[in-house]
C-alpha cells in the first residue's frame, strides 16, 4: 500500500508543476533563490517563497504594470488567443501551447518569480499537516530563538520567508529517520553542498512504495541553462536499503548517476539525512 501525501499537498505540487494561469497550461514554476538578488522586506512571492496562486497573480500584476501584454485584467493569458492554442492548457496541447508556456516561463524568470527549495517544501508540507493533523506548520516550526528578539519578531510576522533548510535540519523541529522508515511528508536535507559547499538543499518525499521513494523539489540544474529549471519530481529506487541514500539509484528527468544533478548534490553534501517533523 503506497504511502502518499495528503490530496491538498499533492494538489499544491501539481499547481507548482502547472501554475494556475487561466488560458495557459503546463507552465512549470521556475526556481528562484533570493541569495543573489538580496531583496529584503519584499513580498514573499518576490523572494522565492510564494504559493502557486501568488506567483500567478504577481505575474499578472507585473505584466499589467509594465504593459507586457501577457495577461488581461481577468488574469487570462493573452497569448493563447493570438497563437490559437486552446485555453486551459493540459498535457494534450503541443506546438502553440508549449510556446505560450515557454514565453510565460521566460517572463517569470526574467522578473524573478519562482520558488526556492525550502519555500516549495514548506508550502507543500503546510497543506499536508493542515489536512492530516490540523496543524499550522508555519506557527509550529521554531525558526529563531526568542533570545534574538528582533529576528524572532520578524520571523513571527513573516515565518514563510524565514524558514530555510536549516530550520528543517534543526533537532528542535525534526528528527532523523532511517531510510527504510521513510514515508511521505519526510524531507531529505542536504547541508553544505555544491562544489563550494556553500549551499543547502531540501527535497520532500511525496510517496513511498516498497522499493521506491518519490520526491519533489525546486532546483536549478546547471545543464538546464537559464530558462530550464524549476519544480521537479524524481524518485529513488531502493536497490540496497542498507547502503544509505547514496547507495540507491536516483532518477530524475530520466537521468541517473552523476548526470542527475540532484544525486550529485546529495553526494557533495556534508550532511545528507532524511528527517521527519516532530509534530
Amino acid at each position: 500500500m503506497p504511502n502518499t501525501l495528503s490530496p491538498s499537498a499533492l494538489r499544491t505540487i501539481n499547481d507548482y508543476l502547472s501554475l494556475p494561469f487561466r488560458g495557459a497550461g503546463n507552465v512549470r514554476c521556475p526556481y528562484f533563490n533570493n541569495a543573489r538578488r538580496g531583496r529584503r522586506g519584499q513580498l514573499s512571492v518576490l523572494v522565492g517563497k510564494g504559493s502557486p496562486r501568488d506567483i500567478a497573480e504577481e505575474a499578472q500584476i507585473i505584466s499589467l504594470q509594465y504593459h507586457k501584454q501577457l495577461f488581461d485584467h481577468e488574469g487570462c493569458c493573452l497569448h493563447h488567443r493570438q497563437s490559437g492554442a486552446p485555453p486551459g492548457g493540459g498535457g494534450e496541447q503541443h506546438g502553440a501551447g508549449e510556446e505560450v508556456a515557454r514565453d510565460i516561463r521566460k517572463f517569470l524568470i526574467d522578473n524573478g518569480l519562482g520558488v526556492d527549495c525550502s519555500g516549495f517544501v514548506t508550502r507543500v508540507l503546510a497543506q499536508h499537516f493542515l489536512e492530516t493533523k490540523n496543524v499550522n506548520l508555519l506557527k509550529r516550526l521554531r525558526v529563531v530563538s526568542p533570545a534574538r528578539f528582533w529576528r524572532w519578531l520578524v520571523a513571527k510576522l513573516r515565518p514563510m520567508e524565514n524558514i530555510s533548510v536549516s530550520t528543517y535540519a534543526s533537532d528542535e523541529n525534526t528528527e532523523k529517520v532511517k531510510l527504510e522508515n521513510a514515508r511521505a511528508g519526510d524531507v531529505i536535507v542536504m547541508l553544505r553542498t555544491g562544489q563550494r559547499r556553500d549551499r543547502n538543499h531540501i527535497l520532500i518525499i511525496t510517496e513511498t512504495d516498497g522499493g521506491f521513494i518519490r520526491y519533489g523539489c525546486a532546483r536549478a540544474w546547471g545543464c538546464e541553462g537559464k530558462y530550464g529549471h524549476g519544480v521537479s519530481e524524481g524518485f529513488i529506487r531502493l536497490v540496497n536499503p542498507k547502503a544509505g541514500l547514496l547507495g540507491q539509484e536516483w532518477v530524475e528527468l530520466g537521468k541517473t548517476g552523476e548526470a542527475n544533478e540532484t544525486f550529485l548534490e546529495a553526494k557533495q553534501a556534508k550532511t545528507l539525512e532524511i528527517r521527519r517533523l516532530k509534530f
Binding site: Q42, S44, I61, L157, R158
Partner: peptide, 10 residues
Amino acid sequence: RRLLGRRLFK
C-alpha cells in the same frame, strides 16, 4: 508588504 510580505491591493 513590509510586515507581512503580501499585497492587500493588487
